[in-house]
């Protein structure tokens, strides 16, 4: 196992007799953002859960050398019986950080991410969906993860909130240099955020193409993203993976 690196090699996975992942090879280096795109049901979430250690692989090796991985799920998954502040500070509590210190850190980060002091005192079900997502992102950031796993974390949000959270993610990455492994079915999101895009096709899930983006994150403005996405979507590999008619 190499420190500061996630390496998946020769991974096969099945649920019962159904093969869901076949021969996956994947490496995420420190500081790198890797996006996995693919149609719904192609095994992306399974792959991420395997990488997170939430599932045990059927065959193959997963070596996670990152010390503090954090995961953000498709739903905020805040604990309904904890006030927002306690939810955000939850990871710190698990690490054994003292109450005052963890509350101070969680408050500082939450305020930076657009939550108000009033929100922090509420229970999650009294928050709007957008505020819940912010809280979930803050909960992942507060532990200063060196690997951030994102499971379609932004897919249910409106475009304004999305771009705001993208900016927060970029700022956090710039500050702490965390690596990111994200799965999404939104090509634009992958192109905006990732250094490397892996395309997955379904039944059984396998990686069919890889695409690197050299343009630095800061230079990817909206026009660039639109242009690049339009180009990307014309690729034959992408079209077959998503079942689009090939011209």
């Amino acid at each position: 196992m190499t420190a500061g690196q996630l390496r998946i090699s020769g991974l096969n996975h099945r649920f019962g007799y159904q093969r869901v992942l076949e021969n996956i090879e994947l490496t995420v280096k420190a500081n790198e953002a890797v996006a996995i795109v693919g149609p719904s049901g192609c095994g992306k979430t399974t792959l991420l859960n395997l990488a997170a250690g939430l599932l045990t692989p059927w065959e193959g090796r997963i070596a996670n050398g990152f010390a503090r991985p954090a995961m953000m799920f498709q739903q905020p998954r805040l604990l309904p019986w904890k006030r927002t502040l306690d939810n955000i500070a939850f990871g710190l509590k698990a690490q054994g950080v003292a109450t005052e210190q963890r509350n101070a850190e969680a408050t500082r980060l939450a305020l930076k991410m657009g939550l108000t002091g009033e929100d922090l005192d509420k229970f999650p079900n009294a928050l709007s969906g957008g505020m819940q997502s912010r809280a979930a992102l803050a909960r992942a950031f507060v532990v200063q993860p060196d690997l951030l796993l994102l499971d379609e974390a932004f897919s249910a949000l409106d475009i304004g909130l999305k771009s705001e959270l993208y900016a927060l993610l970029a700022a956090e990455r710039a500050e702490h240099g965390s690596a990111v492994l994200m799965i999404t079915h939104d090509l634009m999101e992958a192109i905006r955020l990732a250094d490397r895009i892996l395309v997955m096709a379904g039944t059984p899930g396998r990686i069919v193409a890889e695409h690197s983006i050299a343009t630095p994150l800061a230079e990817r403005d909206e026009a660039w993203v639109f242009h690049h996405t339009a180009k990307f979507i014309r690729w034959p590999d992408i079209r077959t993976a998503f079942g689009l008619p090939t011209p």
Partner: peptide
Amino acid sequence: QLKEVAQMFGLSTWMKLTD
């Protein structure tokens, strides 16, 4: 889903129980 969150944060048995 909450069990997965608990596992992801590497909760101790005691924290899993009480939180």
